[in-house]
Amino acid sequence: MPVKVSMTVNGKPVAAEVEERTLLVTFIRENLRLTGTHVGCDTAQCGACTIHMNGNAVKACNMLAMQAEGADILTIEGVAAADGTLHPMQEAFREHHALQCGFCTPGMVMSAIDLVKRHPKPTEAVVRAELDGNFCRCTGYHNIVKAILDAAPKVAAMR
């Protein structure tokens, strides 16, 4: 049975008719063609699909599109300013070479922004523990940790 879903994605209202079993990540990638949100493991371990739903980081591969009915969704495509200026977290990732192949990067950035929201002054140990749900196979996390520690006060200053 197809169902209607509607939500706000990156500030724009969207609606579509989808199969009930459609995952939120599939809806974002296939229906909306926002392909920055990636699927790395299908089972909520790798974090490549991390998005924000109503302001909190969630793994879009592990919920149905239906469960996001009426939600306010932010994907990586909506993080930079409208003129293309990078968010301070994105800028810190660039500055510190916190990405290589780029596949985990969107999920990593979404998690990182959520992390500093919850821990405005994180220590290295807090950052490492909080990144538990995001795998990166390229960087060894070294520069990701550096980038997040560097970005934290700048992101805090945005609010």
């Binding site: 926002l34 392909t35 920055g36 949100t37 990636h38 994907t75 990586i76 495509e77 993080v79 930079a80 293309g84 990078l86 994105q90 990732f93 660039r94 990405l99 780029g102 596949f103 990067t105 969107p106 950035v109």
Partner: peptide, 12 residues
């Protein structure tokens, strides 16, 4: 290459 990867513009 970073700008496209950081903004969801990579094409895998």
């Amino acid at each position: 290459e970073d700008y496209r990867f950081l903004t969801g513009g990579g094409q895998y």
